[in-house]
Computed example of a mutant assay.
Amino acid sequence: MSDQCVVAQYNDPSHFLTAIEVLEKAGFTTDEVSVVRKRSDVREAISANVKDSTSDSPPTGATTAGATVAGGTIGAALGTATMIGPMLVVGPIAGMVAGAAGGGMASAVESWGMQHGVASRYERAVQEGDDLIIVSGDSVLINQAQRLLHTVSYKSLERYESE
């Protein structure tokens, strides 16, 4: 696992879905991108994108992005998803969270230089309805992810590096 990450926090589901789509179009994979959402939000994203096959209109951008999240990032990684209370964690961080001794997400991400209190704040934000995208990797990958995530409106965008 890398020792750097960038965390993008979203309070608007459409911006979150767009950010996932931007990362996927840039070639980021589920080995580099983790998603943290409330379980109910995941179910809503999947349900909202179940489409009537008789519809004559093409899917909207939001529907396409939602389907990408449901069918791509989240759908492909559901086998490795980890539940933490009301949260669903997908991607490489899921294994870290599962392996963390009782500390949940906060203990798992400290290796990236994130303070325990900051990680706990992110956990609370997700419980209150925000969504997180966490990209981990080397500095080149993190720089690219940060540039891409800056193109979509976010609540916060923070970079963490171990010292």
Rank of each mutant, 00 (worst) to 15 (best):
T29S: 15
N49E: 10
S55P: 03
E128S: 09
R39P: 00
A81P: 00
Q127M: 12
I46Q: 00
V42P: 01
M1E: 11
Q146T: 14
V50P: 00
A67M: 11
V7S: 00
A19F: 01
S107E: 14
R159H: 07
A62S: 09
S57A: 14
G61K: 07
M105T: 05
T80G: 15
V69S: 04
L148W: 06
T82A: 08
S156K: 09
E158K: 08
D56T: 12
T151N: 12
V69R: 01
T151W: 04
V140S: 14
S156I: 02
Y160H: 14
P59T: 03
Q9I: 12
S40I: 07
L149Y: 12
K51A: 07
G95R: 10
C5D: 06
T151K: 08
I93C: 04
V97E: 03
D138E: 13
D31G: 12
G113H: 05
K51R: 14
G104R: 12
L132K: 02
V89Y: 04
A100N: 07
K38A: 14
A81G: 12
A98C: 00
L23E: 01
Q127K: 10
S40E: 12
V22T: 15
G102D: 09
L149H: 06
F28D: 03
A98I: 02
R124N: 11
A45H: 01
T54D: 13
